[in-house]
């Protein structure tokens, strides 16, 4: 390592992506924060200035209710996702590689699906003419098929569907890296599978599980089409209202102020995860 020409790339090459990310990622964020203090321009988007009106509007009961709705929905979805995904991932990592790959391919495909398609599919599944109502009638549980959407239930199903593959992928690395000899040792010592689950796996994975809970929470907080397709207007989340204000109410400053609040909440939550060290992937 005597000369720096041993490096794979010349040092200046990093300046190119640095410039690209600065101009196209940091600058847009800066402009957005600036816009949140701008004046609302009727008919246009915004006029530069320093105005706290938009932030004053953020702290009203209406926005407060929206925030409570968003947080409650995402917290519920994240809890359900992690509770279902944890045993799923544990069992998944015990399968052979081929079977693991098949399941991961399917979950990646679902994860990549547009929220529009997920919303459409779930509303079809819960609809009157094509839905599980038909199945329940056939089983003799109910007399006539009915629609289960739009409703809070449908929205929660949608959010869990959206969040589940993500949860699996977040939990997969820490669970797959557990030394298989540890639960094996406990088994040899006579511990029952349920006991191993609660006394070996759960304590070892406490931090990754809390990390997953938070990441899935932030992930579902971003859902913005499902509340419109599967929920009623009272279930509209902060993401929906931000878009609504920016595009349909032409109130960019208010949208930006709400986005700044959402950004702060998300950053705080992600910061907690990083402190927990639950997500050790990345720059190592």
């Amino acid at each position: 390592m005597s000369s720096n020409s041993l490096h794979a790339t010349p040092g200046w090459l990093a300046l190119l992506p640095a410039a690209v990310l600065a101009v196209l990622f940091l600058v847009p964020f800066g402009i957005m924060v600036g816009v949140s203090f701008a004046h609302r321009a009727p008919g246009g988007f915004f006029e530069p200035g320093f105005d706290l009106t938009s932030y004053a509007r953020v702290f009203t009961p209406f926005v407060g209710r929206v925030i409570v709705t968003s947080v409650t929905l995402s917290a519920a979805a994240a809890t359900i996702c992690v509770a279902l995904a944890f045993p799923f991932v544990v069992f998944l990592t015990q399968l052979g590689r081929a079977a693991q790959t098949v399941i991961l391919v399917f979950l990646l495909a679902v994860l990549s699906l547009s929220e529009v398609i997920i919303g459409f599919s779930i509303s079809t599944l819960l609809s009157q003419t094509a839905g599980i109502g038909n199945l329940l009638v056939w089983l003799g549980v109910i007399d006539a098929p009915q629609a289960y959407t739009p409703s809070l239930f449908a929205l929660l199903v949608g959010l869990c569907y959206l969040g589940f593959p993500y949860t699996v992928l977040v939990l997969y690395p820490p669970v797959a890296r557990i030394d298989p000899e540890l639960p094996e040792a406990a088994r040899v010592m006579g511990a029952s599978p349920v006991r191993i689950f609660f006394t070996v796996l759960l304590p070892m994975l406490r931090k990754p599980l809390i990390g997953a809970l938070i990441l899935v929470f932030v992930f579902t907080l971003g859902a913005f089409l499902l509340p419109q397709v599967l929920g009623r207007p009272v279930h509209w989340t902060l993401s929906v209202h931000i878009t609504d204000q920016a595009i349909f109410q032409s109130n960019m400053p208010f949208a930006a102020a709400m986005a700044v609040i959402l950004l702060l909440v998300s950053l705080a939550m992600i910061g907690v995860t990083l402190l927990l060290g639950g997500r050790e992937r990345g720059a190592r």
Partner: peptide, 18 residues
């Protein structure tokens, strides 16, 4: 990796303003 960790509506609004 930041844009991927945050709710996409934030990035979207940033791009819109930009």
């Amino acid at each position: 990796v930041a844009p991927f960790m945050l709710p996409p509506v934030i990035t979207a609004l940033g791009f819109l303003a930009f």
